[in-house]
Design a protein around this nucleic acid. Structure first.
Lengths: 144, 144
DNA sequence: CAGAATCCAATAGGATACTG
DNA sequence: CAGTATCCTATTGGATTCTG
């Protein structure tokens, strides 16, 4: 099995082709697609912002809460737990009073930063064209 | 403003730092964060699978429907429209009878393949460790 | 074939109040 | 401080039916 490589523009399509054929084989099971799980997590409302915050340095619970605008404690707790469960962040409790809890990226979590930056770079570089496409599409829809 | 670069492992954190500071500036508005919109779209249930399917060649509506397992026509229509609105795919109608509609990636859509492959490569490379982390976490939770 | 329209169930997620 | 618990609403998305 060829290792996926993204350092070659032309290779992207073919890398995907191979992956796609593997996934599309008989008895395709979505739950066995590793990308699915990752993208589902990254796509949720808060994961990315939390990972970015923690990429700078470890944060305490309330620090993350302040760093990520508008997140509720409920969702923060839940997202942190999911990330911890996936091994992307580590939770450390200091037996102080009142309690101190620190969250930091694990090595695995750090390894996500690179693909994340790649995606962010694409998003930033494409946002103008996306916005233009939206305007054009909406204008065409309205005209119809 | 520094251009984001992901070709340097150590640079990822600093690239994020700069981006994060920019976003966290006064009057941070989530809707103005370009990554948010992109990740929201990529994170939804079907976008990635559709983009991957179309990366191989143009597809007709029903071809996509067969290529992407278990998607309903409703969600297929909706996701295709969203992608078209964002300028990632192009929709072309042939006035045959019955109608033929072809979807293909635009140049902008093709440019997404590379960051996508980067992410997929990470997901595939990390899935074992993620699964292990989950097992460990769940075992620890059950023990408590 | 390529959808649009409608209905309905499940989930996500915010607000608030409480706890060790 | 660092959560947990409860309630409640909005969005997601599947199933089904209808149409040009």
């Amino acid at each position: 099995m060829t290792r996926l490589r993204a350092d070659n523009p032309q290779g992207a399509r073919q890398a995907l082709a191979e992956r796609f054929r593997a996934w599309s084989g008989s008895e395709f099971d979505l739950s066995r697609c590793p990308v699915r799980g990752v993208l589902d997590r990254l796509g949720d409302k808060w994961t990315t912002l939390i990972v970015i915050a923690l990429s700078q340095r470890p944060h305490r619970f309330s620090e993350v809460c302040r760093a990520v605008p508008d997140i509720s404690k409920r969702m923060l707790t839940q997202t942190l737990r999911d990330l911890e469960r996936d091994g992307l962040i580590a939770r450390r409790v200091f037996p102080t009073k009142p309690p101190t809890v620190e969250y930091r990226l694990t090595e695995l979590g750090e390894s996500l930063l690179e693909p994340l930056v790649t995606l962010i770079a694409w998003a930033e570089g494409s946002q103008t064209r996306i916005a233009a496409a939206r305007s054009a599409f909406d204008a065409a829809s309205a005209a119809a």
